[in-house]
Simulated assay, not measured.
Amino acid sequence: MKKLFSILTLLFTTLAWAQPVRFSAEIDTNRILIGDQFTLQLKGEVNEGTNFEWPIIPDTISGLDFVDISKIDTTLKDGIWQLSQKLTLTSFDSGYVAIPPLTLKANGEEASSQAVAVVVAFPELVEEQDYYDIKEPLEPPFNWMPILIGVGILIVLAVGIWLFIKWWKKRKANKELTPEQMMSPYEYAQLQLSEIEKDQLLQSGKIKEYYSRLTDVMRLYMERQMNINAMESTADELIDKMKELRLATELKEKIDRLLHLSALVKYAKEKPSVSQNEEALVTVKHFLEQTKPAEKEENAELSV
């Protein structure tokens, strides 16, 4: 009895293991409008360890176009491989479209699906409905932002270039300035007097150059500081122009003597005395001190 039970158990197990191959093809709708899409679902079942050959999907099916073909999905359940694949199709031809049977092969067995059909129809026209011409594509509203950003960038660049050119010209001009232009009239005159003393013109017998340079220092100072045309004026003309200056009478007389003495040295080869030479330098220095610009007084801070 036990032997018979074992044989029956083995027989049922073998039959269960030797489940036949199954395959089906289903569509989610049997009617579509032209251009619509529908899904063809392929499903199959084979025993675990079975070599199978999935149906070959044709490149084209008359009247149908493939939109998408998914990969084969496999799931193992109770020793059975459950296989599935989705195909998305569409059609642009009206009428009756048939999908032929597809076959799944496994260990010499075959299972085929039934042919399925789809009706492809035109949309229904409603006679009362108004029809309009196809509208032109709508143009998006004009976007001013890129133009404004571009204009802003150009303005910034233009201002930057202008500032750079201005700085460069100023820098170049500063490099080309002479000591006379860089210094105040008073400072430059003092520098010239120091150079005259340093050159020791009197000791070298250069009396004419000594008086010429002294009077030039005074004349140039008057032009720059007092806006008086002094370089081209004669001694008498310059003395006449100096009448408007608020100078002590004694200083004016000394300047008068200096200018006339300088003219005599230059044109009549006059030879001044040592005291006259010294007085000439002192007169110019005194004139500079009396006419130099007043220094700005700084406001004193009150301390607690």
Rank of each mutant, 00 (worst) to 15 (best):
Lys2Cys: 12
Leu4Thr: 12
Leu15Cys: 08
Ala16Gly: 13
Gln19Val: 05
Phe23Arg: 09
Ser24Glu: 15
Ala25Pro: 06
Glu26Asn: 08
Ile27Gln: 14
Thr29Asp: 11
Ile32Phe: 09
Leu42Glu: 12
Gly44Pro: 00
Glu45His: 03
Phe52Ile: 02
Pro55Ile: 06
Thr60Ser: 15
Asp65Trp: 01
Val67Trp: 06
Ile69Gly: 00
Ser70Thr: 15
Lys71Trp: 00
Thr74Asp: 06
Ile80His: 02
Ser84Val: 04
Lys86Asn: 13
Lys86Gly: 09
Thr88Asp: 10
Leu89Ile: 03
Leu89Tyr: 05
Thr90Arg: 13
Phe92Glu: 06
Asp93Gln: 11
Ser94Gly: 02
Ser94Thr: 06
Ser94Pro: 00
Ile99Lys: 12
Pro100Lys: 07
Leu102Gly: 06
Leu104Ile: 14
Asn107Asp: 10
Ala117Val: 05
Val118Cys: 05
Val119Ile: 15
Val119Pro: 00
Phe122Ser: 04
Glu127Cys: 00
Glu127Ala: 12
Tyr132Asn: 00
Ile134Asp: 15
Lys135Asp: 05
Leu138Ser: 10
Asn143Lys: 05
Trp144Ile: 07
Trp144Lys: 04
Leu148His: 08
Gly150Asp: 11
Gly152Tyr: 02
Ile153Arg: 02
Ile155Phe: 13
Ile155Glu: 00
Ala158Asn: 11
Lys169Trp: 15
Lys169His: 04
Lys170Cys: 00
Arg171Gln: 13
Lys172Asn: 14
Lys172Pro: 01
Glu176Asp: 09
Glu176Leu: 14
Thr178Arg: 11
Pro179Asn: 09
Met182Leu: 12
Glu187Asp: 15
Glu187Leu: 09
Ala189Asp: 09
Leu193Asp: 09
Gln200Thr: 02
Leu201Gly: 05
Ser204Thr: 10
Gly205Glu: 08
Lys206Gly: 03
Ile207Thr: 14
Ile207Met: 08
Lys208Gln: 15
Lys208Asp: 15
Tyr211Ala: 13
Tyr211Glu: 07
Tyr211Leu: 08
Ser212His: 06
Ser212Gly: 15
Ser212Glu: 14
Arg213Val: 00
Val217Phe: 11
Met218Ser: 10
Arg219Cys: 01
Met222Glu: 01
Met222Arg: 08
Glu223Phe: 06
Glu223Thr: 11
Met226Arg: 01
Asn229Cys: 03
Met231Lys: 14
Ser233Tyr: 02
Leu238Ala: 02
Asp240His: 11
Met242Ile: 07
Leu245Phe: 11
Leu245Glu: 04
Arg246Ala: 13
Glu250Gly: 05
Glu250Lys: 13
Leu251Tyr: 10
Leu251Ala: 02
Lys252Ala: 02
Glu253Pro: 00
Ile255Gln: 00
Arg257Gly: 00
Leu259Trp: 03
Ala263Thr: 11
Val265Ile: 03
Lys266Cys: 01
Glu270Gln: 12
Asn277His: 02
Glu278Met: 00
Leu281Lys: 07
Val282Tyr: 05
Val284Thr: 11
His286Leu: 07
Phe287Tyr: 15
Gln290Ala: 15
Thr291Phe: 09
Lys292Thr: 07
Ala294Leu: 04
Lys296Val: 10
Glu297Pro: 01
Asn299Leu: 03
